[in-house]
Design a protein around this nucleic acid. Structure first.
Length: 939
RNA sequence: AGUCGCGUAGCUCAGUGGUAGAGCACCUCCUUGACAUGGAGGUGGUCGGUGGUUCGAUCCCACUCGCGACUACCA
């Protein structure tokens, strides 16, 4: 083995072997365990959020697979209607073309071509991450079988009256020229103005002032509304006003929606261009005057001079004319929420169109109930409240999009405009007994991308057919996703799952945090703070990183700023950390918080962890292979206390990992494994094996006991780490397993099968397979205490590690005597002792540096080793700390209420602790005096 | 406006009704035959503020300050 772990070539080699061997497919037997991959955009690339979530899903999948479950991680990609269409339109734009130039068919062909070219990018990146999805089941939302499911759902919902077509006000994106759903509209507060406009009263008597943030919509006003209780306007209710610039007159109406206190207390009502006005228009039977074209220019309903003007250009000229006519009372600066399309950032226009809607209330009810009664569990639980809030106020879902890329709506129109819904044209004709020569044309619109995503948990498994996979894996086990798509996706999957499968689509919903940069900012191209997970794996030079971050910017003026920040933050680019280090970082970050700030330093730390594991394994292999040979492992063996201890600690670690992963506490599981591997296995256990293996007084059986423990614990540790760090564990396991295989206990038979040639198919180690040994733990804990105290003296006295020192032990209690009697070789080696002597009553005691373990005193003679002044400082400090603790403990124990109310065990423990500290300080006080005397006379 | 969340060591974050933890950073010593991507030791926090419940609060409750997310919105 190399001295340092280098992940580079190892990873791809191992992944290819896994994939070609079919190891990712679910086994025939075992409990079904299924995770649906949230399908990424087919033409997208892997970002940090994906990498994070995929790591967690892969960890769960690998863990369950190793536990013997029939584990399916279902992969796939999403056609991402708007996003993909926009990318291709932009490509066309660069060629000076528009999709209308190509026509629908040619355009769609072009999108498929693009999908073919770029669709493999993200799946290739996923392979780099080690994702163990079953690629043989890879799905795409526009595959024929999934499209069939979409049509089926649409038709069934329509036949039940749960899908309807209606002319209503929708959110219209004037750039994309399509309707979008409420969720696709983002409202940001922006600075605008509030124009106060005078509407003259017909028949004289002055004017009414209305306040508006959108003066251009005046052209579509059909009323002015006031609050019915507003005394100022009582006389005007029912009268007519002159609508400026139009020659029309409109009535003053009363509606309690109007707040008298805001603005002038009078509101212009534009039913065709505002959601609230629309509803008021319905209440008062007001006419709707649409003044815009689909791309938000003024249409023929506007006075001729404004026609064809863009809405914002029109605003200026309308305000100018009003000012000229003396109809502007004032203009105030005003903050308002501006609705923008999440894809185009264009200001969304409420627009009257015919669209398809899903009637949502009947679907929402069972979906709400499924969470309320616990059939679906949100983790962390508080996300269920977010879900409830949304579901209880949910509105009908506009599912039609005026796009070309997507699932075409299965509705056909005759020339009279009558529509028929069916699985295909033939079915429509048959169902409605239409004449064969009746001309039908299919609806031009496609469905919202999320419509097909909502079916993902069952459409990928074969629905509407009743397939074995569907039977086996639905309901799936857990959904792992971000809170940003709880409404877009999670809620809709639950609704559709309840509706069409009659059961929940998943039992748990694990909501991950959102990966942000180290400052807590969201990662985005515009901010220039994006990190490509692949660059963390392979590393990237500074110049390449800068050019990656600054190319293709929407706002080129940010380039310099981004470049500067990048060069400052990564003066040497990014080092190659390897996949396992990245994955372990993600796991360790996956705590309960909703925002996760990603620090590069942590990946470095876990890269070091990989190296630590590598070198620990290197030590084990060198010792076991080197001086013994594997046959030697099978003879009589006599495990040491350290051997029993490490096995016991391993059992505790496995129990912690198990309970943590069950609760999706990846951070706890990662920490438990990290601490065991580094602090217990490497720092202590490996060191404790050395006195045995290299000692002159140990028997072959003892050495064998230690070698066997080394090999078997390492082998099982690799299995335990594998779900989080698949590559390095596989690489090492391949070398360790031949040594370990003959030694594996009966419980581990699955790991011991000849056919198992990969750690990913071996059994996950269970805590119950390893004995807890409190006796060994107690002994080793005491041993560690002794060693740590001596090291503390050495460290604080600056005694070189190479310098061996004498150690005297005074007042040894029974456990300490046992320790010295049986484990002196450990003390010698790990504390760097030259000699170890127990002082008996009456023995001469040289002046020494000292430390205490419970009641036992450790003495390191000062002569030639130690600076008396330093020891005085040290002792004073320890005594001071103890004194402070004694004070606190006394305070507690002197308090009768504490003694009466606290748990007896606690009181007892405090009393014991107090007695111990008192004894120690008494002893150390005397010690201090001795050193002082020496300090005074000696140096 | 409503819902949810956050404020703990220089930084990023865990955590618990009973004398505060990790990683990174920092200081001292050490190239000892697994590992300098390392080893040994160490410094560092009145757990946002105030009040309450309690024998005891960083943890529970109320209020408050500061930050954030989401949902719905007043033209």
């Amino acid at each position: 083995m190399d001295k340092a772990y280098s992940p580079g070539e190892i990873e791809t080699r191992i992944y290819e072997r896994w994939e070609t061997s079919g190891a990712f497919a679910p086994t025939a037997d075992g409990q079904p365990y299924c995770i649906m991959l949230p399908p990424p955009n087919v033409t997208g690339t892997l970002h940090m959020g994906h990498a994070f979530q995929h790591t967690l899903m892969d960890t769960l999948t690998r863990w369950h697979r190793m536990r013997g479950d029939s584990a399916l991680w279902q992969p796939g990609t999403d056609h991402a209607g708007i996003a993909t269409q926009m990318v291709v339109e932009r490509q066309l734009g660069a060629e000076g073309k528009h999709r209308l130039d190509l026509g629908r068919e040619a355009f769609i062909e072009r999108v498929w071509k693009w999908k073919g070219e770029s669709g493999s990018t993200i799946t290739r990146q996923m392979r780099r991450l080690g994702t163990s999805v079953d690629w043989s089941r890879d799905k795409f939302t526009m595959d024929p079988d999934l499209s069939r499911a979409v049509t089926e759902v649409f038709v069934r919902l329509h036949d039940e009256g749960l899908i309807y077509r209606g002319k209503r006000l929708v959110n219209w994106d004037p750039v994309l020229l399509t309707a979008v759903s409420d969720l696709e509209v983002l409202s940001e507060e922006e600075q605008g103005s509030l124009w106060h406009i005078r509407y003259p009263i017909v028949g004289g008597g002055g004017h009414v002032v209305v306040a508006t943030t959108r003066p251009e919509t005046l052209l579509g006003d059909t009323a002015v509304a006031v609050n019915p209780d507003d005394e100022r306007y009582q006389a005007l209710i029912g009268r007519q006003l002159e609508l400026p610039l139009t020659g029309r007159t409109i009535p003053v109406i009363a509606d309690s929606y109007v707040e008298a206190a805001f603005g002038s207390g009078a509101v212009k009502i534009t039913p065709a261009h505002d959601f609230n006005d629309y509803e008021m228009g319905q209440r008062h039977s007001l006419p709707q005057v649409n003044i815009f074209t689909p791309d938000a220019k003024l249409n023929e309903n506007a006075p001729e001079r404004f026609r064809g003007l863009d809405r914002f250009v029109a605003r200026k000229s309308i305000v100018a004319e009003l000012e000229g006519a003396g109809l502007i009372e004032k203009i105030e600066p005003h903050k308002l929420k501006v609705p923008r399309g999440d894809r185009t950032n264009a200001v969304i226009e409420p627009y009257l169109t015919d669209q398809w809607y899903v009637k949502i209330a009947p679907l929402a009810e069972p979906a709400l109930k499924a969470v309320e009664d616990g059939r679906i569990r949100f983790v962390p639980d508080n996300w269920s409240k977010t879900y409830y809030e949304w579901m209880r106020n949910i509105k009908d879902w506009c599912v039609s999009r005026q796009l070309w890329w997507g699932h075409r709506i299965p509705a056909w129109y005759d020339e009279a405009g009558q529509f028929y819904v069916g699985r295909d044209e033939a079915e429509v004709r048959k169902k409605h007994s239409l004449a064969p020569d009746l001309k039908l044309r299919q609806d031009e619109d496609v469905l919202d991308t999320w419509f097909s995503s909502a079916l993902w948990p069952f459409s990928t498994l074969g629905w509407p057919d009743n397939t074995p996979s569907l039977n086996k894996f639905y309901p799936t086990s857990v959904l792992v996703t971000g809170f940003d798509i709880i409404f877009f996706w999670v809620a809709r999957m639950i609704m559709m799952g309840m509706k069409f499968m009659g059961d929940v689509p998943f039992k748990d919903v694990y909501i991950t945090g959102l990966i942000r940069d180290e400052n807590g900012d969201k990662m985005s191209k515009a901010k220039g703070n994006i990190i490509d997970p692949i660059d963390l794996i392979d590393g990237i030079g500074l110049d390449a990183l800068v050019s990656k971050r600054t190319s293709g910017l929407m706002q080129p003026h940010l380039k310099d700023k981004i470049e500067k920040a990048t060069r400052k933050q990564f003066p040497e680019g990014i080092a190659p950390f390897g996949t396992d280090a990245l994955r372990f970082t993600f796991a360790a970050l996956a705590g309960p918080s909703r925002d996760i700030n990603f620090e590069l330093g942590r990946v470095g730390g876990y890269r070091n962890f990989c190296n630590k594991l590598w070198n620990g394994a290197r030590f084990v292999l060198m010792t076991v292979e080197g001086d013994a040979g594997q046959a030697d492992l099978s003879g009589a063996a006599e495990p040491s206390v350290a051997d029993r201890w490490i096995v016991s600690r391993f059992a505790a670690t496995l129990a912690q990992v198990d309970s943590s992963l069950r609760e999706y506490r990846f951070d706890f599981a990662a920490t438990a494994l990290y601490e065991f591997t580094w602090y217990e296995f490497c720092d202590w256990y490996l060191e404790l094996t050395k006195p045995v293996l290299q000692g002159e007084n140990t028997t072959e059986a003892q050495k064998r006991g230690t070698r066997r423990t080394l090999v078997t614990v390492l082998e099982a540790l690799l299995r335990a780490l594998h779900p989080m760090m698949p590559f390095i564990t596989e690489e090492i396991w391949q070398r360790v397993r031949p040594l370990a295989a003959p030694l594996l206990s009966a419980q581990n038979t699955r790991a011991n099968q000849k056919s198992v040639d990969s750690v990913m198919l071996a059994a996950y180690p269970a805590a119950s397979d390893y004995a807890r040994d409190t006796d060994a733990e107690t002994q080793v804990n005491l041993l560690k205490e002794f060693i740590l105290k001596v090291r503390q003296i050495r460290g604080e006295m600056n005694i070189a590690p190479s310098r061996k020192i004498p150690l005297l032990v005074r007042d040894a209690d029974e456990p300490a005597q046992l320790l010295i009697g049986t484990h002196a070789h450990y003390l010698h080696r790990l504390a760097g002792l030259e000699s170890l002597k127990v002082l008996h009553t009456g023995d001469a005691e040289p002046v020494s540096a000292s430390a205490m373990v419970v009641g036992t005193t450790l003495l390191v003679p000062l002569a030639g080793l130690i600076d008396a002044a330093a020891e005085i400082d040290r002792l004073t400090k320890v005594i001071g700390k103890n004194a402070s603790d004694i004070g606190k403990l006394r305070g507690k124990l002197d308090n009768e209420s504490f003694v009466r109310n606290a748990k007896p065990a606690l009181v007892e423990a405090d009393r014991a602790k107090l007695a111990e500290l008192l004894g120690q300080n008494d002893s150390m006080g005397k010690q201090l005096e001795r050193v002082r005397r020496l300090g005074g006379s000696g140096s």
